[in-house]
Amino acid sequence: MTPRQAFLLGLRSVLPLLLGVAPFGVIYGVIALQSGIPALAAVAMSSIVFAGSAQFLLAQLAGAGAPLLLSAGAVGLINLRHALYSASVAPLLARLPRRWKLLLAYLLTDEAYAAAIPHLLPAPGRPRREFAHWILFGSGFGLWAGWQVSTVAGVAIGAQLPAGLGLDFALPLTFIAIVVPMIDSRALLVTALAAGCVAILLAALPYKLGLFLAALAGLIAGAALIGRRQ
């Protein structure tokens, strides 16, 4: 495998996710304008913050004139789960120069991580780890580009997409396509069940805290099962 092939592998793997991300980008653009954010700032936010659900919240908070500290705290809580992705890919990136680490950290989103991770887990026949950063760069760049284009489209069109198409359903479907084949042990099944149940029970918590706590619950349940068997 060459760096170019690894980059293209990452890029390809994120394409199905763009189907689901694009409508969100368009809707974000529309909501940002409706909240009174200038078009230029609305578009710039997609590169400066580059985090879907946090941008939705920021658009609402900015429109409501919420104080900086509260908005910043809320964004921090929403994006807390990205620390888990950071920990997950950190060992793969340990030997890279700092500019690579900065770039890949900036591009580390739910979708880019999800698309790349099946190719990064150690297994026979998988690309060697020395190309992990190119795979992550491919998926990260693909998602970044798709998010920018769809945001601009939302700001430019200024109208909602037809709801009946169910394009937003592409996101959960792709996550299913990624996660289900990964579940090849009882510990991982328990992880998924615990994370899913807690996410549903805590869905009403503000700032998507439920997602973070559910992921933690899944990790602990899975690791506890492994620990007990040893």
Binding site: Y113, L171, F175, A192, A195, C197, A217, G218, I220
Partner: peptide, 18 residues
């Protein structure tokens, strides 16, 4: 020891409520 469980835990937490 928790790290290998991150992908399944985080992505299931995102999907189940949907």
């Amino acid at each position: 020891r928790l790290l290998p469980f991150v992908p399944v835990a985080a992505l299931t937490a995102l999907t189940a409520p949907e």
